[in-house]
Design a protein around this nucleic acid. Structure first.
Lengths: 213, 213
DNA sequence: ACCTGAACACCGTTCAAGT
DNA sequence: ACCTGAACACCGTTCAAGT
């Protein structure tokens, strides 16, 4: 059906030859457009226009609109993982580390709401068919698992299946992010300070939920 | 811009005159279409086709595609609230009640994933402009607040701001629902039994998070 | 190998016109 | 009051054709 996705790999290599590398340019334009107009208004044709190429050009580099979005989502997970790794380096107390990972997650969501939606939403229907995207997501999740395992060893988290505890923590911060981003809490939290305060309180309860009984 | 949304109110009244009441028919067709094809593929023109009217006809009853989706979302919240009210009637132990509310929430999400997305997602950009939708959402959230207040009185939940605790609980079950629906946990949870078991375990941790320390 | 131009089958929305 | 037909400005995707 398509003759695309051949040189996808090379495209991710940051060769600074000013000009070529349309794939990279398309990913950047898409990221900007999503941030500006939201995941709904996003269109492949507009991305092509911004990259100053014909509307058919993207199809040489990406099999479909979804494939381009998958590349955008993948970059999002990579950035999220980087922020999380940074938190893990900076805060060393295992209890506070988990809380701060949660705060960082919510912070990412509030800073890039549309990006988050692409990373998780139905725009990318079948995540299985984008293995590098899956891998990037797994890397971020892996950092959470590691933090929890450490907290268990330090005696701050209950023993038992670390994956279950990680899903608990992830669900909590992901849910809070979603509710905030979707405007579901708008009557009580109006600005970023409110949101940050709420994130801090909710992640405190996370600590309790994880604690040994 | 539009001459719509005049007889919206009457449209919700279930008068069983077989034939008229296009608004009702459009809402039902939209709900079915969303369930069948997902929130992405949904189109107003297809809804019109299924209701056997012209593509312009919906605009007499709904100001826009978004307004029709808002009606669909509102119905979703109403159904969710009904299920929650049912749980509150059936299980009377305050601790188990909160857990079961969570399980019911996740159950709703798994049974109607696309409906949930419309209820929370960006398809309805400005929820403030659909007051009846907001009200329906608030009703469901109110049931959770009530359950938590009761648990506090019974000494099963820590004292303090019930709204904060409710946001904690809601975030958790909403986040778990989202992760499940978006396929983010697909490598570990493959069928509904897995999902139900996970929901049960995660909501047990919810109990701990809410418990007095 | 990489891109353009033109085309196809769709959209959401509007507006005159019908009854 | 309620709906149709035709139109406008958009989409995603394909495919021949250019270099």
């Amino acid at each position: 059906m398509a003759r695309a996705t051949r040189r996808r790999e090379r495209a991710r290599g940051a060769e600074a030859d000013g000009g070529g590398d349309l794939a990279r340019k398309l990913i950047d334009a898409a990221t900007t457009l999503i941030a500006e107009r939201g995941p709904q208004a996003f269109s492949l044709r507009e991305v092509a226009r911004r990259a100053r190429v014909s509307e058919a050009a993207p199809y040489w580099h990406f099999a479909s609109k979804e494939a381009l979005l998958a590349a955008v989502a993948e970059q999002g997970f990579t950035e999220l993982a980087a922020t999380m790794a940074d938190v893990r380096r900076r805060v060393r107390d295992p209890r506070r580390q988990i809380q701060q990972l949660g705060v960082a997650y919510v912070g990412f969501a509030l800073a890039r709401p549309s990006h988050l939606r692409i990373m998780f939403g139905p725009e990318i229907a079948d995540k299985t068919s984008h293995p590098t995207l899956r891998a990037a997501g797994a890397r971020a999740f892996g950092l959470l698992i590691a933090a929890i395992t450490e907290a268990q060893r330090a005696g701050y988290a209950r023993r038992g299946n670390a994956w279950n505890l990680a899903v608990f923590a992830w669900s909590l911060v992901h849910g809070l992010s979603a509710l905030l981003v979707d405007g579901q809490l708008r009557d009580r939290v109006r600005n970023r300070r409110d949101a940050a305060a709420l994130a801090s309180r909710v992640t405190k309860l996370l600590e309790t939920g994880l604690a040994p009984r």
